[in-house]
């Protein structure tokens, strides 16, 4: 029990140090713009197809599943607005962040862990370069900025999926669907939902980088880093979401 507590506090201390080092290195030149752009492309653009398909299915399925209940209450016309609020406020950001954690978090964890066990990170260090700035700062910054963009795109595609869903068993024109969505969505729905995605992106990349950067035990460590990066970053997404909902409710 005492040794478990000791390990927990040691891990918490190392993670805190890692996070503080990120903020310190972020603002000190030299700035790795070229690597940042490359990571933004890999993390953002390369995740787009997966996020788009997930978003479309999310909107379509939620609409089809919600219709019978709303019909029972004679509130079928509320379908576009209800689905839009659900997607924009909660489902879009959280599902996209979880997909992002699965793809990007595990990718970062496995890549850095592989570099660690193959001594590539040590090679950068002994050449007098700064591997933390090149590998960690660029990835965390790229993920923090790319996830909100992906969430906005995923929300838009999910709403289009919802429009298709509405028309599978009913008949609603796109202008009418769009009008109902816009009328019911307020600034208070969109703004907090987007803000929290910056934190989701930051947490996913931070945990991926942390697990990869401190990987041990050879190739086994690579698997462990990728696995634990997904598990802990998914958990972090839910915890941040819970905190964000509480804060939004207070405001």
């Amino acid at each position: 029990m005492i040794s478990s507590l000791k390990i927990f506090f040691e891990e918490a201390g190392t993670l805190t140090h890692f996070t503080l080092r990120f903020f310190k290195e972020l603002f000190i030149p030299r700035y790795e713009f070229k690597e940042f752009i490359k990571q933004a492309y890999l993390i953002g653009y390369k995740s787009f197809p997966l996020i788009a398909v997930t978003g479309f299915i999310m909107g379509l399925v939620l609409t089809i599943q919600s219709r019978p209940t709303l019909m029972d209450f004679g509130a079928e016309s509320w379908l576009p607005a209800m689905v839009a609020v659900s997607i924009v406020r909660e489902i879009g950001p959280v599902i996209t962040a979880l997909i992002f954690a699965g793809k990007v978090g595990s990718g970062i964890g496995a890549e850095l862990a592989s570099m660690k066990v193959n001594e590539q990170i040590d090679a950068m260090e002994v050449a007098g370069n700064n591997p933390f700035k090149f590998l960690v700062v660029t990835r965390i910054a790229a993920a923090t900025l790319m996830l909100p963009i992906l969430v906005i795109v995923a929300d838009a595609i999910a709403l289009y999926g919802s429009y298709i869903g509405c028309n599978l068993q009913g008949d609603v024109s796109f202008p009418l669907f769009f009008l109902q969505v816009i009328e019911k969505l307020s600034f208070a729905d969109i703004f907090p939902a987007i803000i929290k995605t910056f934190f989701f992106g930051f947490a996913v990349a931070l945990i991926g980088c942390y697990k990869g950067y401190y990987a041990k035990n050879g190739t086994q460590g690579v698997g462990e880093a990728a696995n634990s990066a997904v598990v802990y970053s998914s958990l972090a997404v839910f915890i941040i979401d819970m905190m964000a909902v509480q804060i939004t409710n207070l405001l």
Binding site: S114, M115, N118, E119, Q120, D122, A123, A127
Partner: peptide, 12 residues
Amino acid sequence: IGFLFQSGALYD
């Protein structure tokens, strides 16, 4: 100081 690692440690 140059350091040649056992594996070469080339950046993949």
